[in-house]
Structures are given as C-alpha cells and as structure tokens.
C-alpha cells in the first residue's frame, strides 16, 4: 500500500503543481478561474486518497465542503465577469 500511496500522492501533486503554474501564468482572469477550480478538485482528491489509504473518515466532511466551494467560487467569478461585460459593452441578452 505504501507504493500506491507514494504514486498517488506524486500524481496528484504533479497535477496540483501544473494547475498552480497556470494560475501564475494564465493570461486572463478566466484561465485562473479554470485553474483554481481544477486545483481545488485535486485537493479534494488528495483528501479522499488520504482518507482511503488511512481508512480514516474524519476528513470526509471537509472534502464535501471543498468540492462545493470549487463550484460556488467559479460560478460567482463567472457571474461577476459577465456582469462587467454587460455593463461595459451594453449588449444585454435582449439586444
């Protein structure tokens, strides 16, 4: 099981690092939103892998909160950017 643990943590850590690279480099706000979303989901996966390997369900409620926060966060940023768009260009959905 320790081999599985090392391998799974390495894969997840690689994914999280790459997502962080995109958060740092991402030319636009939306790139960063996508990358943050992915990063949070990778963190949730990491918590689940820990809970599975240790057979320790203490962290599972945290995992639920993290995965829902990823959704709420990206939707609220998308709505915020969309609101700026409507005001700046003046072409609402009725146009």
């Amino acid at each position: 099981m320790s081999v599985v643990a090392a391998l799974a943590y390495a894969l997840l850590g690689g994914g999280a690092l790459l997502a962080l690279v995109r958060v740092a480099r991402g030319p636009s706000l939306l790139d960063r939103v996508v990358a943050t979303d992915t990063l949070l989901v990778v963190i949730a996966c990491g918590l689940a892998v820990y809970a599975a390997l240790e057979r320790d369900p203490t962290l599972v409620p945290v995992l639920v909160v993290v995965s829902l926060l990823a959704f709420v966060g990206s939707v609220s940023i998308a709505r915020y950017v969309g609101g700026m768009l409507l005001r700046s260009e003046g072409d609402g959905p009725a146009a």
């Binding site: 997840l12 994914g15 999280a16 790459l18 997502a19 995109r22 992915t38 989901v41 990778v42 996966c45």
Partner: peptide, 9 residues
C-alpha cells in the same frame, strides 16, 4: 487529475 493539470498548461 495529472492529465487535467497537464492539459491546463
């Protein structure tokens, strides 16, 4: 998850 990160980059 790793391929998702790779695709992001």
């Amino acid at each position: 998850c790793l391929t998702a990160g790779l695709g992001l980059v």
